[in-house]
Amino acid sequence: MSIAQSLSRIGPARLFVHFAVLLIVIIWLVPTLGIFVTALRDKDQITVSGWWTAFVGSSQTTAVRLAGADKQQQDGAGYVIAGSVFGDGGSLGKVQAFGVKIQDPAAFKAGAPADLGDGETLLINDDGSYKYSKNASFADARPRRIYVSVASPPQFTLQNFKTVVTGEGIGQSFINSLTVTIPATIIPILIAAFAAYALAWMEFPGRALMIALVVGLIVVPLQMSLIPLLRLYNEIGTFFGVPSKTYPGIWLAHTAFGMPLAIYLLRNYIAGLPREIIESARVDGASDFDIFVKIILPLSFPALASFAIFQFLWVWNDLLIAMVFLGTNKDQLVLTGSLNALLGSRGGNWEILTASAFVTILVPLMVFFGLQRYLVRGLLAGSVKGG
């Protein structure tokens, strides 16, 4: 079967969907790859070339001043100054071209003598060694300034990640983010699963009103309820003598903001499960708790995993709620807060910023790829089934 026949059997609509998904994946993957490659590059190469040139090296033009008259040697009727444009530091790359004017820093190719006029000749080899000749003494001349274009081989290092993890406070913030995110993901799932089962399969007065209330709470912006929730939390904490800015406080805040979506998603999925299974279990004498634990939870794992991905990514990337309910002390600062502070203090150090950014997205990537096979199943089932 030819490729054209295969494409015709797929259909234009399905082909468009595949193309759109592929395009989204590419758009999402390219910046991530760029961050990772930049985080591994040497800081000097980052400033002169883009990450897409990382595997072919980089070219950099620098100003160099040749040796002065104290290094000249007589060569027949003329004088010569020899040395290296890299000084005593050894070869830092391969010289491609050179020039004597900033307007044209690559006027001459390396390895070919250049006539500079007034009886002066300059030869610079690709290894950086040069021979500066003149038909008169250099005694009354200032050391000449030239420009060289140097091609450096690719340089990769793990020092950027080491600096971030050990020297920028990111390590402690990484632990703080895990301490916030894991409970703030598990708690709403546990509560929402019980509520979703009750709203889907248990008959009680006001059930329809509670479902409508849950749907309405999904569209409430968290910024609208953030200050009232914080005041309520502080008043309760003061009444019971509980200190503010604690982990339980931020766990409860994220649980409150994540509950409406969790209940809505899980309720739609659980309501779409076969009624015969639930009724057969009740006929056999199973209680609602037994049905929920032994039947509903195992069958609802795709929906649970779908919400876990959303909640984990939301909490991990959050900065506003963490600053309000946890504070900005160095020992309590989450990863997004540390990265935000790093942007202010190290704005020009791209190697540090990209390494920090990749450390930040590393855990969400692991969670997403670990649970992504359940994501579409959970979302589709929850969107087309209901009861």
Results as ranks from 00 to 15, higher is better:
Gly89Ser: 12
Asp284Met: 15
Leu333Gln: 04
Phe19Cys: 15
Met224Arg: 04
Gly237Asp: 02
Ser137Cys: 07
Val164Cys: 11
Ile189Trp: 11
Ser338Lys: 14
Asp284Val: 14
Ile250His: 00
Tyr79Phe: 14
Ala256Arg: 00
Pro243Asp: 00
Ala303Val: 12
Asp140Glu: 10
Val164His: 05
Pro260Ala: 07
Val367Leu: 13
Val48Tyr: 08
Ile10Phe: 10
Val359Pro: 04
Tyr269Ser: 00
Leu230Asp: 06
Gln172Trp: 03
Ile26Phe: 15
Phe36Val: 06
Gln5Asn: 11
Val80Ala: 11
Gly119Val: 00
Ile218Cys: 05
Ser383Ile: 09
Asn234Tyr: 01
Pro274Ser: 00
Ser49Cys: 13
Thr32Gln: 09
Phe55Gly: 08
Gly68Ser: 05
Phe138Asp: 07
Gln311Ala: 11
Ala136Gly: 12
Leu362Ile: 08
Lys385His: 06
Asp44Trp: 10
Trp51Glu: 01
Trp28Lys: 08
Val180Asp: 01
Ala39Thr: 11
Tyr130Trp: 07
Arg41His: 03
Gly171Ala: 13
Ala141Val: 15
Phe16Pro: 02
Val334His: 09
Lys385Cys: 02
Leu261Thr: 09
Glu120His: 15
Phe204Asn: 10
Ile26Pro: 13
Ser129Glu: 13
Lys134Tyr: 15
Leu178Val: 07
Gly327Met: 04
Trp201Glu: 15
Ala355Met: 12
Gly128Cys: 03
Ala192Ile: 06
Pro153Asn: 10
Lys134Ile: 08
Thr61Asn: 04
Ala200Cys: 01
Trp52Pro: 03
Val293Trp: 11
Ala208His: 13
Arg207Ile: 02
Gly57Asn: 12
Leu229Gly: 04
Ile27Gln: 09
Gly272His: 12
Leu7Phe: 15
Ala67Glu: 15
Val164Phe: 11
Ile46Lys: 09
Ala303His: 14
Gly111Leu: 13
Ala106Asn: 12
Phe98Pro: 14
Leu380Ile: 10
Gln159Leu: 14
Ile296Ala: 13
Phe257Ser: 02
Gly76Arg: 14
Leu222Trp: 03
Gly378Pro: 05
Phe16Ile: 07
Ile278Asp: 14
Phe301Ser: 02
Ala193Asn: 01
Phe292Gly: 05
Thr328Val: 01
Val80Trp: 06
Ala13Val: 08
Ala341Pro: 09
Gly387Phe: 10
Pro260Val: 01
Ser137Ala: 11
Asp115Ile: 12
Leu339Val: 11
Pro143Glu: 05
Asp115Thr: 10
Thr336Trp: 00
Ile352Arg: 05
Leu229Asn: 06
Ile182Met: 04
Gln172Glu: 05
Pro302Ser: 02
Phe257Lys: 00
Ser338Val: 05
Tyr79Gly: 06
Ala208Glu: 15
Gln311Cys: 14
Tyr233Arg: 13
Gly93Ile: 06
Asp44His: 14
Pro248Met: 01
Val85Pro: 04
Ala4Gly: 08
Gly111Trp: 03
Leu229Phe: 00
Ala114Lys: 06
Asp318Asn: 06
Leu353Cys: 08
Leu178Glu: 00
Val80Gly: 09
Arg142Trp: 03
